[in-house]
């Protein structure tokens, strides 16, 4: 299959940008201070990191392979992902909040007043790494 230069550049740039965002997300997961901030950073991978790579794959499937089945399946991955990912996100965030003291590093905590006050008395003093 011959790939024209323009297509090749477009596909490579899309996938490269996707890889950049995935990299930033992984660095964030390692460096962020608490569980919730790590989740925020991992959303980087889940959204633009994945979607730019998928769009690159879609362009490849449509213009180079000319295979409608592959293109449909790539679009299917994107749709399923955009529905599933937030559901998992809500569940993990709520569980992490209920489970531990991770949220004590927060500046504002409106959720604490909503539940029955079960705030521990000692606030962890957080120094920089």
């Amino acid at each position: 299959m011959e790939i024209s230069m323009t297509l090749r550049v477009i596909i490579d740039v899309l996938i490269g940008l996707g890889v950049f965002f995935a990299f930033a997300g992984v660095v964030g997961i390692i460096r962020m201070p608490d569980c919730f901030c790590r989740m925020q950073s991992s959303t980087n991978i889940a959204t633009l990191g994945l979607f730019l790579a998928l769009i690159g794959g879609l362009v490849y499937a449509i213009f180079v392979e000319r295979n409608a089945a592959t293109a449909a399946k790539i679009a299917f991955i994107a749709v399923i992902y955009i529905i599933q990912n937030p559901a998992g996100g809500h569940a993990i965030a709520k569980a992490a909040y209920n489970r531990g003291n991770e949220h004590l590093k927060s500046v504002v905590d409106d959720l604490a007043n909503a539940d029955e006050a079960e705030q521990p008395a000692t606030l962890a003093k957080e120094g920089d790494e």
């Binding site: 925020q40 996100g89 965030a93």
Partner: peptide, 11 residues
């Protein structure tokens, strides 16, 4: 809101 990085709906 959850899909946007930087914000997560918890409850």
């Amino acid at each position: 809101i959850t899909l946007t990085p930087g914000t997560i709906t918890v409850d």
